[in-house]
């Protein structure tokens, strides 16, 4: 092992934080629907990529500003999430079956993306693409910084909503004991629709961040699943801050491993962490 320069190490640390914040952002919606609706929503990843491609399309072809695309994408995705939950509750889909059904949705969305945008790599050109600033000897890319800030903002506001509002208390109560929450007037079905809508909208936001910083291809959908699941499980199901914190820990650990040992070792990091957490906190999952 040859020790890299401080600058390289610092830059790795920074990129670890940035990619970790995207893990956290992707994990937020996943964690909420898993912890509160008992659904393992694989389609979350495909939805995020669909969002990324839509952002790409609206920006590169139609010429919109990437941030403005959210005004179109968020309401559509929210509606999609609501519709999905409506169908899930209409057909009383069990937690295990939710995994299968959402895997099916993933494959459908992947095919749709492949049909519309082909399997070629796509990279969004936007005014933000190459924006960066320098702190000391380190470069801070604006799109990645934006991802970090958005992830923090969404995680904290979700936390505050769950913690300090009647709606949030109702959500937590019905996750614990839906029947008794209902006896005190909580309309579980309505809350589930709302939560699923928000979760899908979060996937849309993650999609924007993906499009801002990454090259897109349909098969990339699957590349994120393992590590984001690790962040969600380490962070605690239903916990809105957990995925972000765990995501950043994983991202940094991966980046340091890449810099110090070899890039090939990076994927081992998240899964070693996940296995350790599963072994030590099996009761909580």
């Amino acid at each position: 092992m040859n020790f890299p320069s401080w600058t390289l190490l610092g830059q790795s640390l920074l990129s670890g934080i940035f990619i970790g914040s995207l893990y956290g952002l992707l994990g937020l919606g996943l964690s909420l629907s898993w912890g509160m609706l008992r659904q393992i929503n694989l389609a979350h990843f495909a939805l995020a990529f669909l969002g990324a491609y839509l952002t790409f399309q609206l920006t590169s072809v139609v010429g919109m500003d990437p941030l403005m695309t959210l005004a179109l994408i968020l309401p559509c995705f929210f509606a999609f999430g609501v519709l999905m939950q409506w169908l899930f509750s209409r057909f009383a889909i069990s937690p295990f079956n939710s995994l299968l059904v959402t895997f099916g949705i993933t494959v459908i969305i992947e095919s749709l993306i492949q049909w519309l945008w082909t399997a070629d790599y796509r990279r969004m050109d936007s005014v933000y693409a190459d924006m960066k600033f320098k702190v000391g000897t380190l470069y801070v890319p604006i799109p990645e910084l934006f991802t970090l800030l958005i992830a923090i903002l969404l995680s904290l506001s979700t936390w505050a909503l769950l913690r300090y509002t009647d709606l949030g208390r109702a959500l937590r109560a019905s996750a614990e004991d839906g029947q008794i929450a209902a006896a005190f007037g909580v309309n579980e079905k309505k809350l589930a629709l709302l939560l699923s809508g928000f979760s899908a909208a979060f996937a849309g936001v993650a999609g924007l961040c993906l499009a801002l910083s990454y090259t897109l291809s349909p098969s990339q959908i699957y590349a994120w699943i393992g590590v984001v699941f690790a962040a969600v499980m380490i962070g605690g199901l239903g916990n809105p801050i957990g995925p972000l914190v765990a995501g950043i820990v994983i991202g940094v650990a991966e980046a340091i491993t890449m810099a110090l040992i070899s890039p090939a070792w990076a994927p081992l990091v998240s899964f070693s962490l996940l296995i350790i957490v599963l072994l030590t906190r099996a009761d909580k999952i």
């Binding site: 009647d166 208390r169 109702a170 937590r172 614990e176 005190f184």
Partner: peptide
């Protein structure tokens, strides 16, 4: 709601 605080349980009662 055992994971929620006593106050939150009471607040939920008046939802």
């Amino acid at each position: 709601f055992v994971a929620m605080s006593v106050l939150e349980n009471l607040e939920l009662g008046s939802f």
